[in-house]
Write a protein that binds this DNA or RNA. Structure first.
Length: 605
RNA sequence: GGAGCGGUAGCUCAGUUGGUUAGAGCGCCAGCCUGUCACGUUGGAGGUCGCGGGUUCGAGUCCCGUCCGCUCCGCCA
């Protein structure tokens, strides 16, 4: 069908007769001579139609339209050079040659496309409805290829380090305490359901008990939660688990893995030995457990400066065990009123008890602030020094509980970065390990303690006594996240491998012995028979592919993604299921969406 | 569940304090053109201004409601 792909022919091929096939990328009809750029996934090659070469092919070529599939037969020739005219195209890799066509076959005509492939389009609905056309665009094609390349690099790296790729069930059980599950009715077991896995967590631990030592899987995971630019209902993890390892081993392994993926995908060498930060520091300094460290706005504690303050709000906060902290947005004193309103909104949403953020601007060598006059000269001097306030800076304050202040200033920090476009540097890759996560978090609503990572996470050996003593808030976990530019790429932990400790952990989480046996019996049983120490991590492949591609949404690196409502607009899924199919799986009826119920049928009050 | 932004030609968008027949670029159709590569050029077709209601002499524009999309918060062990 073809002798070469469309990014293959060079000057060395001049004189050869070739057969090419591809899509008409563009057609330039000059009347007497017609140029066609023929495209396949590799690139573009220019074909020329002239009556001297073939009257028949030239006549037919007038009819060519964009995206027709055509096959041509012809001779590779050098681009024309006459006198001072040089028709070589430096923008094309095949730009030194062209094909003079002797035969043309229109393999399959294309209708006019619903959108142009050479233009960006903002209508994502339309892109998704015709995703197979959207994927023809160079940007999409590049993203999909790059994803394949990094996935293959990951496989190669893990294969070479002694890991087995092992598949685990897609039809499994609901995850207790986890995200909402997608359920699948069982026809052979009336009234029973499978759930799609949120992660292969328990299976991979059981593979460690099985003695396989090193496991990985490019695993599809499913979570029925609300979606975001970086969250899809089904997504892909590079799931890893190993036996006889500690935190340090996993960190080294994953650094090597990410280095090889970025090398493969971008041809760049990111240095291994990523910086590390404790969860506690990340929250104090950046107000986030996945800080973007590309810009240098840090939260500064001001307790020492305001130790003797008379300012009531700060005084009260500090006396009550709270904190007073601030961030300096350097060079942002020119903030607009609209931006200020936006920051205030965000701060209030994040838990600021008053309507406006306290701030100090330093502009034209003057401090401007509603509260500057309240501070003493000593405080002013200390603030200027500690926050490094210089011309054009603006400082935002927050006072309250430590967690509260972290959340507020962390949110404000990222919003300022967005406004100042400090987070737009897509060629800077700031990897970071966040370590020493807390094991447990108290849920104010339910009053229960929940696992911050998951219930199989090993408590930090130094903090086991605190766990025994019931000092849950201060137990650290052997859990770690790898972060890149403000995105959580992955997280993992060293696991519990002892039956008693695991049972203790379940009890702390409010899962009684009976429930433990029902939900986790297989795991607890497995731990009775010589379970090896083990741990692992899971990386979000979609997010990695997104960051490698320099995209803002994982939909740009997934061939057939779903929209915000979890719908596939091309295939129109999810779809309605008829009564016959429902009966087969013993489901009686579906609940009607009240929004779709016609007003006439709506129940009357 | 909540907040913000958006919806005008096939696509990307403009549309002023409410005022004649709603525009541009690209694409599409027809013609001309033997060196183009974002080809050029001449002409043409193409609109339920998301939908419903209201205010008004008059609504793309103002008001109310509603639907859809995106972004964020909640949620995501």
């Amino acid at each position: 069908m073809r002798t070469h792909h469309l990014n293959e022919l060079r000057e060395t091929h001049i004189g050869q007769t070739v057969t090419l096939i591809g899509w008409v990328n563009s057609a330039r009809d000059q009347g007497g001579v017609i140029f066609i750029d023929l495209r396949d996934r590799e690139g573009v090659t220019q074909c020329v139609f002239r009556s001297e070469a073939s009257q028949e092919a030239t006549d037919l070529s007038h009819k060519l339209r964009v995206e027709d599939v055509v096959q041509i037969h012809g001779k590779v020739e050098a681009r024309l050079k006459t006198g001072d005219v040089d028709t070589t195209n430096d923008k094309l890799e095949t730009g030194a040659i062209e094909i003079v066509v002797s035969e043309l076959k229109i393999v399959n005509k294309a209708d006019v496309l619903p959108f142009q492939l050479d233009k960006e389009l903002s209508n994502e609905d339309l892109r998704m409805k015709y995703r197979y056309l959207d994927l023809r665009r160079a940007r999409m094609s590049k993203n999909i290829r790059q994803r394949s390349v990094i996935t293959s690099a990951a496989r190669r790296y893990l294969d070479d380090t002694g890991f087995f790729e092992i598949e685990t069930p897609i039809l499994s059980n609901p995850t207790p305490e986890g995200a909402r599950d997608f359920l699948v009715p069982s026809r052979l077991n009336p009234g029973r359901f499978y759930a799609l896995p949120q992660a292969p967590q328990q299976y991979k631990q059981l593979l460690m008990v099985a003695g396989l030592e090193k496991y990985y899987q490019i695993a599809r995971c499913f979570r029925d939660e609300d979606l975001r630019a970086d969250r899809q209902p089904e997504f892909t993890q590079i799931d890893i688990e190993a036996s006889f390892v500690g935190q340090e081993d996993i960190i080294k392994l994953v650094e090597g893995l990410l280095v090889s993926m970025f090398q493969a995908g971008l041809g760049i060498d990111v240095p291994a030995g990523f910086p590390r930060m404790t969860y506690s520091d990340a929250m104090d300094i950046y107000g986030s457990d996945k800080p973007d460290t590309r810009f240098n706005i840090k939260i500064t504690d001001l307790a020492d400066i305001f130790a003797a303050t008379e300012f009531k709000i700060f005084r009260g906060t500090l006396d009550g065990g709270g904190v007073v902290r601030a961030i300096n947005a350097k060079g942002f004193a020119g903030i607009t009123t609209g931006q200020m309103n936006r920051l205030n909104e965000i701060a209030v949403q994040a838990g600021l008890p008053v309507k406006n953020l306290a701030f100090v601007k330093y502009e034209n060598r003057e401090y401007k602030s509603p509260l500057w006059k309240i501070f003493t000269d000593a405080e002013k001097e200390a603030l200027t020094a500690k926050l490094d306030i210089a011309e054009g800076d603006i400082v935002f304050f927050a006072a309250g509980s430590r967690d509260n202040v972290s959340t507020i200033l962390g949110r404000v920090r990222t919003e300022i970065a967005e406004m100042m476009e400090l987070n737009k540097n897509s060629t800077k890759y700031n990897f970071l390990w966040v370590v020493d996560f807390p094991l447990l978090a108290h849920d104010e609503e339910t009053g229960h303690w929940g696992a911050v990572h998951h219930p199989f996470t090993r408590p930090h050996p130094e903090d086991v006594a605190k766990l025994e003593a019931g000092d849950y808030a201060n137990v650290r976990a052997l859990a770690y996240d790898v972060v890149l530019n403000g995105y959580e790429l992955g997280g993992g932990s060293i696991r519990i491998h002892e039956k008693d400790l695991q049972a203790k952990m379940f009890s702390v989480l409010g899962v009684g012995p009976e429930e433990q046996q029902i939900k986790f019996g297989h795991l607890l049983d497995a731990f009775r028979f010589g379970a090896p120490p083990h741990g692992g991590l899971a990386l979000g492949l979609d997010r990695i592919a997104m960051l490698v591609a320099g995209e803002n949404s994982i939909r740009e690196v997934i061939a057939f993604p779903k929209n915000n409502k979890g719908a596939d607009l091309m295939a129109s899924s999810p779809c309605q299921i008829g009564p016959k199919e429902l009966r087969e799986v013993y489901i009686q009826s579906t609940f009607k969406d009240p929004k779709q119920t016609p007003a006439a049928e709506a129940p009357k009050a």
